[in-house]
């Protein structure tokens, strides 16, 4: 019987890495400050002590070299887990991700595999300003050949990271900074959560909310508020954007007739817009109200707390938006 303990999101990730590295000697971890420091957010703590410097490699600040080294090592038979400290830094190494890792299998006729996991952080709310606060998963979901994983709970974090490490494709695993301290029940043994299977966080009949990462928690808060006012909300966490569990969303919208997508990424051409388009295509006849998005307006993330709060999606904005669509009956 599985032992369930309450541990934090960061502890769940750390445990997943320890257990997988114990199981598979081809797994290596590399990135800036992942060794001695244990990762800037502590995700790789203890790995260097346990597995040594051959498997836990502190890299120079050369994202192109070490992300690319992850790709090359994966091509040559290892199973690297590489940390990109903040997703905002993808600008200095994107070629290795989207032109190399993502396309090699296809370009080379499906004869090879690139079992690479890139872990990175997303999310605003810490006044980290425009270059350390972005939630850039849409841009990776846009490019063919990269799986996009976005856990929202410690349970999902562990199970999805284990699946990621075992999967034979390039993946980006997004960790929201505000989730690291969140606690939740997590089995001690290793377990894998399949990609492309959404989690219905709470069932409801009036409106469907699709929310991602930290926004799942804001959506649940909003759902509780709305319940008091007699509005029944169904909250769906897709958990992975690529592959994406369309059917779970369609099924829910066919029941509720309304959809609000909550997404901390920039609004323009983002994930929320894509989900809205899919639902408009597939469920048009079922819709009782326009599809709404609660997203971050397409402006750089500002520093000052009052400005940052102004632009970020939150429970309050979700409640307001849900009320708009419910009113339209």
């Amino acid at each position: 019987m599985s032992e369930l303990r309450e541990i934090t999101f960061v502890e769940a990730l750390n445990e997943a890495l320890h257990q997988e590295m114990e199981r598979d000697p081809t797994i290596v971890v590399m990135g800036e400050d992942v060794g001695v420091y244990g990762g800037i957010f502590g995700v790789t703590k203890g790995l260097l002590e346990r597995f040594g410097p051959d498997r836990v490699v502190d890299t120079p600040i050369s994202e192109t070299a070490f992300i690319g080294a992850g790709v090359g090592a994966a091509a040559a038979g290892l199973r690297p887990v590489v940390e990109l400290m903040f997703v905002d830094f993808f600008g200095v190494c994107m070629d290795q991700i989207y032109n190399q890792a993502a396309k090699m299998r296809y370009m080379f006729g499906g004869k090879i595999k690139i079992p690479l996991t890139i872990r990175t952080t997303i999310g605003a709310g810490l006044s980290a300003a425009a270059q350390h606060s972005q939630t850039l998963y849409s841009i990776f979901a846009h490019v063919p050949g990269i799986k996009v994983i976005v856990p929202s709970t410690p349970y999902d974090a562990k199970g999805l990271l284990i699946s990621a490490v075992r999967d034979d494709n390039p993946k980006i695993f997004f960790e929201h900074k505000l989730l690291y301290g969140v606690r939740g029940p997590v089995p001690k043994e290793p377990y894998a959560i399949p990609f492309g299977v959404a989690d219905v966080k709470t069932e409801g009949s009036d409106v469907t909310i699709v929310a991602v990462a930290y926004m799942v928690h804001e959506a649940l808060k909003a759902s509780n508020e709305l319940k008091k006012e007699g509005v029944s909300v169904e909250v769906i966490d897709p958990r992975t954007l690529v592959p994406f569990d369309k059917e779970a969303v369609f099924k829910s919208v066919r029941k509720t007739g309304r959809l609000v997508v909550v997404d901390e990424d920039y609004d323009r051409c983002g994930f929320a817009s894509w989900v809205a388009a899919l639902v408009a295509d597939e469920c048009f006849g079922y819709l009782d109200a326009p599809i709404k998005r609660v997203t971050t307006p397409t402006v750089p993330i500002p520093f000052s707390p009052t400005l940052e709060k102004e632009i970020l999606p939150n429970a309050e904005k979700i409640v307001k938006t849900v009320k708009e669509v419910v009113k339209k009956v």
Binding site: I67, G68, A69, G70, G72, Q96
Partner: peptide, 22 residues
């Protein structure tokens, strides 16, 4: 692999050499 991006083979070679050394 041949490569359409000039210089992109460098990091890939580093990774493959890392694997060989490992």
């Amino acid at each position: 692999g041949a490569n359409g991006i000039v210089g992109a083979g460098g990091p890939l070679a580093v990774g493959a050499a890392f694997a060989a050394k490992y």
